[in-house]
């Protein structure tokens, strides 16, 4: 009897509401406003106007000049290193053929033009008329 009373008291104690509570599972809001807001540690608590205009580009054409999609989308900047693929006409890049007496080495070309090495297994397959592939 006494044991039951003690157990009941213990159970009652366990069910008491603690003063420090678990506030529940973390939830992420379904929609988050990503519009630029000042950084919390910014001393001025404001953003320069270039942030709030929505784009750093003055026109769609200027945006296209800088846009990238697996490389420059369209590069019309033609100064020095900044010239992108297609930034200059083919004729401006000089002749395709080498000057007389100069020869291109295949190995200087991009890797896709290199001779592909044969493996020993391939050689063996060829020499055995394909039989080695099934050996």
């Amino acid at each position: 009897m006494f044991t039951t009373r003690v157990l009941r008291q213990a159970a009652q104690h366990a069910e008491r509401t603690p003063s420090i509570k678990f506030i529940g599972k973390r939830t992420i809001p379904a929609s988050i406003d990503h519009s630029p807001r000042p950084h919390p540690a910014s001393p001025s608590h404001s953003l320069p106007s270039s942030f709030t205009t929505g784009s750093s580009h003055t026109s769609f054409s200027a945006y296209r000049d800088h846009a990238q999609q697996h490389g420059p989308l369209r590069k019309t900047i033609r100064s020095g290193d900044a010239a992108g693929v297609g930034g200059a006409a083919g004729s401006e890049l000089g002749p395709v053929t080498p000057p007389q007496g100069i020869y291109f080495d295949r190995n200087e070309l991009p890797a896709r033009f290199h001779r592909q090495p044969l493996t020993l297994a391939e050689i063996e397959v060829i020499e055995t008329g394909g039989a080695a592939a099934f050996a």
Binding site: P36, P38, P40, P43, P48, S50, F51
Partner: peptide, 21 residues
């Protein structure tokens, strides 16, 4: 790329660490 610094030379960012680009 035209990125701006503040008067103490810090890169200016917004609350999601984005610069103006």
């Amino acid at each position: 790329i035209g990125l701006e610094l503040d008067e103490r030379g810090r890169v200016i960012i917004d609350s999601e660490y984005r610069t103006k680009i």
